[in-house]
Amino acid sequence: MTDLPGVELTLYPEDLPFFDGLERGEVVVTWCDHCDDHVWPPRSHCIRCYSPVAGSRTLAGTGEIYSYSVVHRGEGVFAKRPPYVLAYVSLDGGPTIMANVVADDPAALAVGARVRLRPRPAPATGRAGALFAVDPSA
């Protein structure tokens, strides 16, 4: 389940801190300094105070599974591939984000399970999404 494809994405400046961060093995979210809160998904402006968003924050890269689904019918570049885990991960000190999850022990895959970002090698084409591994020590 770790063999996830790169995806061709049209990215804009507000998207780059997150996707570039993943390539360094970090979880980076856009941040509103005025509200001292994350802005998620990333946007050019904070949706609470409507200030332009200038900053970002690097999180610990750990969190827990809010929900997950083993997807058997992927679409696009995910079609005709083995089942993979689509999830929402609630990040420590940050937002709940969509991600993929891998569990070396499939029985450990559960809502509430602790997870840690698992760095992925850069795909041959496109961009890599966020992949987390179930890790009780996280």
């Binding site: 995806v7 994405l9 990215l11 019918r73 696009g76 984000i97 969509m98 809502v111 890599a128």
Partner: peptide
């Protein structure tokens, strides 16, 4: 939509999104 890339990057599907709601409700 404006945030499609955050779904597409992770292989999100329409059924998958409803499945996430179902799994959370079960939990």
């Amino acid at each position: 939509g404006p945030h499609a890339v955050y779904e597409l990057a992770h292989g999100s599907t329409l059924v998958g999104q409803y499945a996430l709601a179902a799994q959370r409700h079960m939990h």
